[in-house]
Write a protein that binds this DNA or RNA. Structure first.
Length: 103
DNA sequence: GATTTGACCGGAG
DNA sequence: CCTCCGGCCAAAT
């Protein structure tokens, strides 16, 4: 039987290299469900706090953190990314940090 | 069961 | 930078 969609999402997410970021749509596409970016977002929202998955490496297509600015999650994600060497220009992450699957 | 909402996307204007 | 739109899908109202 086919792996559950959420499971494939977790799998793809787990392969994002440290110090790089990927978009929701990108994850969805790599998980074999193009245009299902929203499902990815929902899946991340439901992740337990102690997950070992690099959820912080997932940002929106504009290369900005998608969580509500000012929220704990937003600050947490930003902190973790910076800790990995990812830079921020204002709210935006330079395109150079975008993960190229298969590069 | 219809409507709204949400850690979304891409195109158009 | 902004809004509006159509697509997608699950959970909450």
């Amino acid at each position: 039987m086919q792996p559950e969609p959420a499971e494939r999402i977790w799998q793809v997410m787990a392969m994002i290299p440290k110090g790089r970021v990927a978009s929701y749509g990108q994850i969805a596409a790599l998980a074999g469900m193009p245009r299902h970016a929203r499902l990815v977002g929902r899946t991340l929202r439901e992740l337990p706090r102690g997950s070992r998955l690099p959820w912080h490496r997932v940002v929106n297509a504009s290369l900005k953190i998608s969580q509500r600015p000012g929220s704990g999650g937003h600050l947490e994600q930003r902190r973790r990314l910076i800790a990995e060497g990812v830079e921020f220009v204002g709210e935006r992450i330079p395109k150079a940090y975008r993960w190229d699957a298969g590069a």
